[in-house]
């Protein structure tokens, strides 16, 4: 069985920036307002304490690693902003605290686990030690008293990894990276079939036509 993505280049949508459509018919006022607001969020904590925030940044770099050649998505800042606003998913297990409490307790527990296992804080661990700790959390192999009633797996699944990934893919840079069309109202799409690209959608790079694709993507409005 052939892997359909085997020959794809790393930069799949070279030159594509979903924000180039910001002033075109694909974005309405409300969307501009909402995304502008998000883009104004920087990597500065308002909910987290400074050491907590550094820890979130370290974990985010593992869960949603970012390439070095482009501006970073402030994942920790986005998570922080959401907690600052006090948004909730609207459900939790009986032994799970509400969002803010879960984060505070979970981060403290991660730090405690790092110190217990390695005698150093999480941010001082090597990358493989950090990953090892996250995998243990995922598998329920952490038992420090700092977790309290909250199961480490549940924290991983419903809070830590979930909130970080959702924050990453709330950002236009992530949208451009995966070639998504982005906001679409009032203008939606016309060409719906296989390999049918509207002129305002990202062109995907094949193996050889990179420059042409880049030119197309730069022209998108």
């Amino acid at each position: 069985m052939r892997d359909p993505t085997r020959h794809k280049p790393a930069d799949r949508y070279p030159g594509y920036d979903v924000l180039s459509k910001r002033n075109g018919p694909s974005w309405n006022d409300k969307t501009r307002r909402v995304v502008d607001q998000r883009l104004s969020i920087d990597d500065e904590p308002r909910f987290f304490a400074a050491d907590e925030f550094a820890l979130v940044q370290a974990v985010a770099a593992l869960i949603a690693p970012q390439p070095a050649h482009r501006p970073m998505i402030p994942v920790a800042g986005l998570v922080d902003a959401k907690l600052h606003r006090g948004e909730s998913d609207g459900f939790r297990a009986p032994n799970m605290p509400r969002e803010r409490d879960a984060w505070t307790r979970g981060l403290a527990a991660i730090e405690a686990e790092a110190r217990r296992a390695h005698g150093r804080g999480f941010c001082e661990l090597t990358k493989s030690e950090q990953i090892d700790l996250l995998e243990k959390m995922q598998n329920g192999e952490l038992h420090d008293a700092a977790w309290g009633e909250m199961p480490p797996q549940a924290f991983w699944k419903h809070r830590l990894s979930h909130d970080i990934v959702m924050a990453y893919y709330a950002h236009p840079t992530a949208w451009s990276e995966i070639g998504w069309g982005g906001p679409a109202s009032p203008r939606g799409y016309v060409r719906l079939d296989f390999n049918d690209r509207d002129s305002w959608e990202a062109a995907e790079a094949g193996s050889s036509d990179g420059d042409n694709v880049r030119r197309i993507n730069r022209g998108i409005r």
């Binding site: 018919p25 009032p186 203008r187 799409y189 016309v190 002129s199």
Partner: peptide, 14 residues
């Protein structure tokens, strides 16, 4: 259609 003629790049086609 949504956007009317201001959204011509879609609506002339659709």
């Amino acid at each position: 259609n949504m956007g009317g003629f201001a959204n011509w790049s879609q609506n002339i086609l659709a």
